[in-house]
Design a binder for these strands. Structure first.
Lengths: 218, 218
DNA sequence: ATCTTGAATTATGAATACAATTTGAAAAGA
DNA sequence: TCTTTTCAAATTGTATTCATAATTCAAGAT
């Protein structure tokens, strides 16, 4: 049992930030909807103070918009925002790929490889949810292997803003096939620890994703 | 006169975030110092609620550390953090350079060029403060010309975390000369709108800056 | 003298209270 | 009937209060 950690009880506002962010990302709190302070407080069993603190933080992250004297709304996912965010995510993932190739343990590489094979199997089986999960795990594992907390933090922030788009537009079958193909290249670069190649492929992957979203949403 | 904006009076917590962030970046609030809530409230003439909201936001940005039941401290600028942040800033600036080359107006390019010449003059005159200001303006102008709010937002966040390092270590004369030399290349890439070259040079510039900081701080 | 111990003080986290603003609908007027 | 005005209810921004955890410091023990 670990007795060195000083028994950290997370404060209410921290837990609220986490839970609200999750709710926003998974769509329980719909974009554009106003956040009913009193109601949420009652549901969650907290007072307004910590909830409002959490909303300020989420507003700073761009997930929530505060309109003075008019409360908070869940921010909309606009095409402009996606178009702005994706290139940023792309360079961040690119950096993560490079760092990961240099710093990952063999176990981490093996893990990413395994998860890729999982993912390909899910694709063959047409299991979208499982595919998405595996895909998510891969990108997360790459980010973890990069061992850069600042990078991870900003990546997480951007991901949360963008992941909601997945609820707006389903990926087309042809784009799905393309993405899988791209991931074969990514896998190869991971296996050979070819950082610059991985970086390039990841950036392309993200930019293609954005292009696909653009066509799907117009 | 702009009549479209709905006369936004910034809320107390927003102003506090801005002011505190500025105070932290410019060093009025020293790294490691604990933030005396009551005292600050009295000085600023606000109650604890908006101040605490602001602290939560700044904590989320990494400028402040909240220790449960022990209040807030100004976060320390550690070498680890700098080492993590600089590569991220580098890729962001790199992206900004590429976008700026593609999207900047001729006026913006001209502005950046002019500011470069200013900066070179300040270097010749040995005027460090003016040099720093010009340097800052250049990077800000590049970022503005990239026309990507998401990029700008994350760049601003990272800059605020890192700029405090400037107070810890003065740039050596030799590094200063190097930086100027690097900026000559950057200027050239800007003038010719060579995006990929500018991107590379900016990334190198940042990475060299980090290396210089590393030696200066050990 | 130095190190514990524990009550008093202080500061923090969260809840509540209060004042100002917005909202929505009914009433007055065109 | 439609517009405008007024006013109450609701909601928000900020201040204050309350309970609890941390810190301080003096007294006692080693």
């Amino acid at each position: 049992m670990n007795l060195s950690t000083p028994l950290a009880r997370p404060s209410l506002h921290e837990e609220l930030v986490t839970r609200l962010r999750q709710a926003i990302v998974e769509g329980s709190l719909e974009p554009g909807a106003k956040v009913p302070e009193r109601e949420l407080c009652e549901n969650l069993g907290v007072s307004r103070t910590p909830l409002r603190e959490a909303l300020k933080v989420l507003a700073n992250e761009g997930l929530v918009i505060l309109e003075s004297n008019r409360g908070a709304r869940i921010s909309n996912v606009t095409m402009e925002e996606l178009a702005a965010a994706f290139p940023v995510i792309a360079v961040l993932e690119g950096l993560a790929g490079e760092l990961a190739c240099a710093l990952a343990t063999d176990e981490e590489i093996a893990q990413i490889v395994t998860r890729h094979h999982d993912m390909f199997r899910y694709y063959d089986a047409g299991d979208r949810p499982a595919y998405f999960q595996a895909n998510h795990d891969i990108h997360a594992a790459l980010m973890a292997a990069a061992r850069n907390p600042v990078l991870a933090q900003h990546y997480a922030m951007l991901s949360s803003r963008v992941e909601r788009a997945r609820l707006l537009a389903n990926v087309s079958d042809s784009r799905w096939a393309e993405a899988v193909e791209e991931h074969r290249g990514i896998l190869e670069a991971v296996e050979t620890r070819d950082g610059s190649r991985l970086s390039t492929l990841l950036k392309e992957h993200l930019n293609n994703k954005l292009a696909a979203l653009k066509t799907a949403l117009t």
